[in-house]
């Protein structure tokens, strides 16, 4: 008798486990509010949107700011689309300056050239990946990020920093933690918002939004991740600039 009860209980337990496992992964890619919270503001973005109804953004990034697919599917393009959607009546332009295989120091060296004649209101700087891969001395990385952000601010732009991707497959190969820590501190010291791409992607992987371990060769997963990143980044920029899209609509 006991054995039968025990077996039944076990069977029930197993079915529950199986049912849980069968649950389809969430198709959404929501980002919890705390991952998008920042104390640092984007006053120039707020002003440009409110007075000029215009927002020029330059994204400076390495390869992971893009995907090998038709233009506009990387997160900069998705952010542009999302911002246009969320900020009706505002002319949003996003220019992408790819700096493939360049460390933060190399980008910082060229920063004046990159910004020359462009006068973006906001510079979004995605960095750290190349430095982590080449294990650049953390001290040098810190100096480079700090000087780079300072140069962008000096050129009259607000700045947003984007850190590394969460790359579960490569965790035994790339040491990301020091670079992520440094970017957090650098952002805090220069008072610029940091878009924590690493934590956000990690969250998506944990909650099952995306399987970032996937060995799929197709570009589909990359497209979906970049779409979600682009939308989250748009929300992040709007929040950090303390814009209220509803108010903009009324003004129109």
């Amino acid at each position: 008798m006991k054995a039968i009860v025990g077996l039944t209980a076990l069977a029930m337990l197993l079915t529950t486990v199986a049912a849980v496992a069968d649950d389809p992964p969430h198709a959404t890619c929501e980002v919890p509010a705390y991952l998008l919270a920042t104390d640092n503001k984007l006053p120039k973005v707020a002003e440009a949107v409110k007075t000029d109804r215009k927002l020029d953004i330059m994204v400076i990034g390495s390869r992971s700011s893009t995907i090998t697919a038709p233009d506009g599917t990387g997160f900069p393009g998705r952010m542009e689309a999302s911002l246009r959607d969320k900020l009706p009546g505002v002319t949003v332009n996003v220019a992408l300056q790819l700096q493939v295989k360049k460390t933060a120091e190399e980008v910082t060296k060229d920063i004046d050239q990159l910004l020359e004649g462009k006068k973006p209101t906001l510079v979004i700087w995605q960095t750290g990946t190349v430095d982590a891969m080449r294990s650049i001395d953390p001290d040098d990385f810190r100096t480079a990020v700090d000087e780079g952000v300072a140069a962008m601010q000096k050129a009259g732009a607000d700045v947003v920093l984007i850190n590394l991707q969460y790359t579960p497959r490569m965790e035994t190969m790339i040491s990301t933690t020091p670079y992520i820590d440094i970017m957090r501190v650098a952002a805090q010291q220069r008072e610029v918002p940091l878009f924590d791409r690493f934590a956000i992607m990690h969250h998506w992987n944990e909650t099952g939004s995306f399987d970032l371990f996937s060995a799929a060769r197709g570009v589909d997963l990359a497209k979906r991740v970049h779409d979600c990143l682009g939308r989250a980044l748009a929300t992040f920029v709007i929040d950090a600039a303390q814009l209220k899209p509803a108010e903009l609509r009324i003004q129109r």
């Binding site: 390495s62 390869r63 992971s64 995907i67 090998t68 697919a69 295989k101 990946t129 190349v130 891969m133 991707q165 790359t167 497959r169 490569m170 190969m173 790339i174 970032l212 996937s214 060995a215 799929a216 060769r217 197709g218 570009v219 997963l221 990359a222 991740v225 970049h226």
Partner: peptide, 13 residues
């Protein structure tokens, strides 16, 4: 074995 376009940069390592 692994060639995910999302990580083509990191694969450079």
């Amino acid at each position: 074995q692994f060639e995910n376009p999302l990580y083509s940069e990191e694969m450079g390592i």
